[in-house]
Design a protein around this nucleic acid. Structure first.
Length: 212
DNA sequence: GCGACAG
DNA sequence: ATCTTGTCGC
């Protein structure tokens, strides 16, 4: 595995280097059949969890975890350096690579346009998108119904969408990671969240990451 | 200087 | 993220 930056300055440089590798175009004929949720829980150690589900049935296909000590502090904008090492370790344990990664956090909607979802996608080569519970950027409230959305804007650029996944609930913040477009990302998130605010992928990974 | 700041 | 019970609403 690649060597990880240990300082804030080195991490920022790494993001600026890797962001040029983001591919905004989906693979030809991209029709994902599985999606994996990625999440990390903070206890005595960090525990990363990955849950792959079938996109048609939303049922679990396989799951994996990886645990380890903190290797990087929490710094807004440098989230990936904290969570990604263990997430990649967990991903390596899967028997089948998922067709798309659904990350807990931002992708393009990031100060340097390279949030966790972009980073995960570039390092794995797997199409990826980010679903954040909070936004980095400005947005007008979307309409009240499931499926309503408004652009998420940062410094004059559209970086994602505020998407209502259930009638009357707080929106989630969708942005592209790698090899996915924003319309596809939006459709996938809606498909993954038929009943709750957060995608099933995120819910399953969150639950697994909290198990002792 | 002040406030904001994914998880 | 986490410290934390009950409670309101569908």
């Amino acid at each position: 595995m690649a060597e990880w930056p240990r300082t804030e300055a080195a991490a920022v440089l790494e993001q600026e280097r890797l962001r040029g590798l983001v591919d905004p175009n989906p693979p030809p004929g991209f029709v994902p059949r599985t999606a994996a949720g990625l999440d990390v829980h903070y206890g005595d150690q960090l525990k990363a969890a990955v849950c792959t589900i079938d996109l048609d049935t939303l049922s679990l296909v396989e799951q994996s975890t990886a645990e380890g000590p903190e290797s990087f502090p929490y710094i807004p904008g440098l989230f990936a350096f904290r969570e990604l090492p263990l997430l990649l370790e967990a991903l390596d344990k899967l028997t089948q690579p998922p067709d798309v990664l659904v990350c807990d956090g931002q992708g393009l909607a990031h100060p340097r346009r390279f949030g966790l979802a972009c980073h995960a996608g570039v390092l794995t080569g797997i199409p990826s998108l980010g679903v954040g519970k909070n936004a980095l950027g400005d947005f007008d409230p979307p309409g009240p119904k499931r499926g309503d959305w408004t652009p998420l804007v940062d410094r004059g650029e559209v970086v994602g969408r505020a998407l209502r996944t259930q009638d009357g609930v707080k929106p989630v913040f969708v942005s592209i990671g790698h090899r996915v477009d924003l319309d596809t990302a939006t459709e996938l998130v809606l498909r993954l969240a038929p009943r709750f605010r957060l995608p099933e992928t995120t819910r399953l990974a969150d639950r697994l990451s909290r198990q002792a």
